[in-house]
Design a protein around this nucleic acid. Sequence first.
RNA 1: GCGGACGUGGCGAAACCGGUAGACGCAGCGGACUUAAAAUCCGCUUCCCGUUUGGGAGUGCGGGUUCGAGUCCCGCCGUCCGCACCA
Length: 848
Amino acid sequence: MQRRFNPLEADAKWQRIWDEKQSFRADDTSDKPRSYVLEMFPYPSGRIHIGHVRNYTMGDVLARFRRMIGHEVLHPMGWDAFGMPAENAAMEKKVHPGDWTRSNIANMKAQLKRLGFALDWSRELATCEPDYYGQEQALFLDLYEAGLVYRKESAVNWDPVDMTVLANEQVIDGKGWRSGAPVEKRKLNQWFLKITQFADDLLDGLKTLDQWPEKVRLMQENWIGKSVGLQFRFKLDAPVGDITELEVFSTRPDTIFGASFAAVAADHPIALALAEKDANLAAFAEECRKTGTAAAEVETQEKKGYDTGLSVIHPFTGAKLPLFVANFVLMDYGTGAVMAVPAHDQRDLDFARKYMLPTPRVVSPDGEDTPVGDEAWTGPGALINSDFLNGMEIEAAKAAVIARAETEGWGQGTTVWRLRDWGVSRQRYWGTPIPFIHCDDCGVVPVPKDQLPVTLPEDVSFDIPGNPLERHPTWKHVDCPKCGKAARRETDTLDTFVDSSWYFIRFASQPDDKPFDKAVAEQWLPVGQYIGGIEHAILHLLYARFWTRALNYCGKIDVKEPFAGLFTQGMVTHETYKDPAGHWLAPQDVEKRGDSLVTVAGGEPVTIGRVEKMSKSKKNVVDPDDIIDQYGADAVRWFMLSDSPPERDLPWTASGIEGSWRFVNRLWRLFGEAGDQGEGGTNKGGEDRGGTDKALTRKLHQTIDGIAKDIEALSFNKAVAKIYELTNAIEKAGPSASRTDAIRALALLVAPMVPHLAEEAWSDMGCEGLIADAAWPPVDPAMLVEDEVTIACQVMGKLRDTITVPKGLPKDELERLALAAPNVARTLDGATPKKVIVVPDRLVNLVI
RNA sequence: GCGGACGUGGCGAAACCGGUAGACGCAGCGGACUUAAAAUCCGCUUCCCGUUUGGGAGUGCGGGUUCGAGUCCCGCCGUCCGCACCA
């Protein structure tokens, strides 16, 4: 055998064999237990980056492991292929978005193949192909029929130069990210999905997701933002136009007797109406709008208001409360108006202090009516100064006020959500066409399902700004399906988050004639383990949860939660380098000279910066292809799994990948020993010199057991450490049948992680079949128990000695042995312990 | 400001339910093999004192509970992430 593992040969060979044998094809009809392992599918940007490699390696180890323990595994891959970068490329490079995307997919697929992932490529899909987005259109129509889709006028960010709608994150300092032109707010009729209809269920469902990170559940909970309270109307003391009442929402109706003023947002109808006749108010409102959006300054921003001169009438006391326009009231939350209770709300208090408004206390923790200082009291207590509420606790008082408001007819108990309906319209070309037709007579008409898919026209140009669908000469002109008269196609396309809201269902079942087969999909769903980046904690994961519920609501599938288990992996980071002029340097432009780093080009000194997420702008990137060329897929995979816990960031280092490469070769040599012995036919049954080695066998079984648990917990770094330990133990052990067995078992243990090497070793050792199809080695429970234990001998809690004894010795025996331990005896120096603590099989602590 | 996570050697980290802190890897140091280098193998490697046996300190800081605390409790400090005046 060769002294060094040759990954260039071995990788390609086994990848070809796995392909030919369709080793990782998932069988829909299998009666084995099912495992659906899924990593978030990539956007086809053109190149795989190292973060993908980490993500997919983790999923791959789990998928391969699950196969070994006898599961039928679904581990698919596809492409989140619609979206803006393709249109940007079309504008910059004059390529069609489809051509650009498909060639990127081909490149990235080749890159993924080189890593030897156990993927079922027969289920590959790309969201930009009509056989996918056509089915998505069908589902969209189902949702429409179920009343979950509607149109409404809504403001968008409009770039007047590019003539396009921008996402919020494309607006930088109020300017378009590409054109630099000031962004305008435009009102457009847009398509919405009724995610708010499921707000309560989406919130409740979080409780059932016990295999999700707490952090993600919390983020979603905050995003959904449920507030329970009272919505009620204040009478105005004088009408504003035809407005006679002010509707407000409060989560603290119990404090209503502490209200000392009311406030509305600058965009509130009352403020707008008043501003028409009041230039000062108009100026103030304009100021609020400007600073209102600059999120970073909100913290330091001072509470400011404008006294309208109007008052509202307190529903219980009849008192007149002044009405302000205030910069801290938001138009798009609740009713855009608040009752202000300074004693029990910090914002209201800050405002009241500035404008010298009263701050009466109505909740008291101790029953005393102590004046309110600079901090509002938001804690528990009993109501005071509150008429019929006096003496009640907060919750009781809330209920009492809501009950009174409802019987008297001026308010009702209400729940307000932060979550908004999902606007899915995008005025762009490279997305799923929304399957509707606008008819002057019939209005908005759905495209009949037998006319789907509504495909994108191919002959489009990006030479001039705007939506190519809008200005295409023929595409949008169609006849109304209802009345047959000339009508227009909808030219908006769907948000790409719609595409990724159901791809995991399509992976589970992809018939030609419908989006999925209910029964087949339900056999696989929900996804058992979903792995991806934390950046999708809210939007993608929430939309997918909504979409699954929407399909459930339409009777399409009996699943509500799409992802039973979620894991968010850390980023791959790298040191950053700068030359003396302060320019970023790529790792390959830097070399070590003595103890310091210099530039390869000129030998100039290099400063080492922070370890940061790999990014092109900082040049601290490594290309997976280069690394695979140099070390092969297995060393890269091994490095991705080593050292750092998977949820934490992984610092990429040259010496780290070198270390992985060394280990791959260490395994290779070890397997070579067993292979060589096997060749002569002398060792196949393990009958060789030396007999058994119980300590090694025990170590082996402990390792098998430990690694299985580590992989299930996705603690790959711990599994890797255990492999190292076992390898060290095998190398140190003398020849024996146990050792040969251990080497063979080791191949199985590393098979999910370094599959090419494992296959090569497996065939060298003369074993049957593919290791990809082999079973995980069985654990003998008797071998998990040590028969000797090391006991820590402490005096006053300090370790003085250790003794090695048979497991299970009685307490008094342990005490006797500990007292006899030389270092213990010397430390005690004849003293008699006052107290002796004995923890069997663990330690003895002598207290003097 | 609110919410969350984290803080352990030169570095990445491990440590079960409160029971020998630093497994495993990287880097470093010493040695073997070699004409030499690479590769490989062996040994050392938390810090301080001591030639060794050994002793002292030590898990961000300050307290506490306990026979015993990286782990539990109280109070700080720092780093990172999320949200952003949500009534």
